[in-house]
Write a protein that binds this DNA or RNA. Structure first.
Lengths: 235, 235
DNA sequence: TCGTTAATGTGCCGTAGCGTACAGACTATC
DNA sequence: GATAGTCTGTACGCTACGGCACATTAACGA
């Protein structure tokens, strides 16, 4: 792979760096494959690596009591896992689990910290991304309280669609139910409705987005809100 | 007021600083009174000041669509409003509204930033507090999804009790309903049950905590979780 | 090819909480 | 002490969703 090629990295945070900073950061990274279901960190345990997704993507999930893990954040090539390392905290705040197969850049916590000291642009970028993440968390809190299953599911599908860079992805009803913190059969009904309306189609875990516009009409306002937040803070 | 007295400030973040750093920070602060209902910042507008509550306390609320504002964070003398200023973002992420009368130290955004550059201890402290705040947001998201009104209300009362430093505070059913994102009459029923059990008593907005232990037994696990998080990160 | 497992469809009952309305109780004000 | 405003109690129908159970169907592996 040519040097030139390596510097065109498809991660929106890394793209914000100057050539020089990017090169420095990349020299500390290795490309790894993320595979569905892989757990990258557990809450309250040391966070040794950060990941900048390229084509894969990662769910941040809470682990509350005896409930199934529920998603509170989604990280694709617009973000990173491990931004809290900036805060000088060694532990992971949430479980991170790979939700979409694909590649990511992996860097050790210590090297990331060293690069942060060197590059104010990197600091600034990750600062802003951390802010966006906080926005997402508080939006999730309100969304869970106020919005119904169907719009929330539509939002979730849109967010996944954005990060999967494909109209098809793997995703069972049971899995989606866990992510949204609801019953599996509730998802079957809601997803069935979308399928009847030709908005999505699915079979045994293989979901296709047929009508993205339809999804956007079904989803709650929170989708647009989080997109706007990102756009405003990391244009 | 003697210099000695001024340096014993009842805010747990400021207490973590060295004498010297504290003195420097305090020289940039003024003591102000917070009064119930006062709005200190609005989302997506410039955040000009930070506040370190002493005896007052502040709610962070989302403003989602046409819903009433709902609380996602509570800030008393264990924390501060405006920690996101560290991230170099000029805007406020959420509405902040005074929930308990009392005093706070107020500092301008620019002066806080200057002090941050001087004191790594201050940086470290605020970093960790920001992390705690993120933990709280994600806990709220899950709590809203999974837990019922009564335990959530109990948690909320405990959190307020901690920050009010008093067994009595002002708080109507309608207000509490807003904070929890539920109907007013739902609160009346849940609070009525606690009153029957002699756990709280109230009349026209004046609430008294009679049996804190009873509240702790009623509340969901999230209360303990957030306390533990704070204790672990800011011991 | 068949049995096993995973994914989905469906139904049924229970209930927490919504939207709403209204009445009673207390407080403040003039 | 009349009046208005605020706070609280309560009730009623409704719906989304929880918990659960079970049937059906597709995929997969021995």
């Amino acid at each position: 792979m040519s040097e030139q090629k390596r510097l065109q990295v498809d991660n929106r945070l890394i793209e914000r760096l100057t050539q020089k900073e990017r090169k420095a950061l990349l020299s500390d990274c290795e490309t790894v494959e993320l595979s569905f279901g892989q757990i990258l960190c557990e809450p309250r345990t040391p966070l040794r690596f950060a990941y900048f997704p390229l084509t894969g993507f990662i769910s941040l999930v809470t682990t509350l009591g005896d409930h199934l893990p529920m998603e509170v954040g989604l990280i694709g090539n617009e973000g990173m896992l491990g931004v809290t390392l900036m805060l000088g905290v060694d532990e992971a705040p949430l479980r991170a689990i790979v939700q979409g197969n694909g590649s990511a850049l992996k860097i050790s916590a210590s090297r990331l910290r060293r690069r942060l000291l060197e590059s104010t642009k990197l600091q600034k970028t990750l600062n802003r991304y951390l802010y966006v993440l906080m926005d997402e968390l508080s939006t999730s809190a309100a969304c869970n309280q106020f919005h119904e299953l169907q719009p929330r599911m539509a939002r979730w599908l849109l967010m996944t669609h954005d990060r999967a860079h494909s109209d098809h992805f793997y995703l069972t009803h049971a899995y989606l139910a866990g992510m949204l913190g609801v019953r599996r059969s509730g998802i079957t009904v809601a997803a069935g409705a979308l399928q009847r309306d030709m908005i999505i189609s699915y079979s045994r875990g293989e979901i296709s987005i047929l009508d993205r516009k339809g999804l956007e009409e079904t989803c709650c306002e929170c989708y647009e809100t989080t997109i706007d937040d990102y756009g405003r803070l990391l244009p």
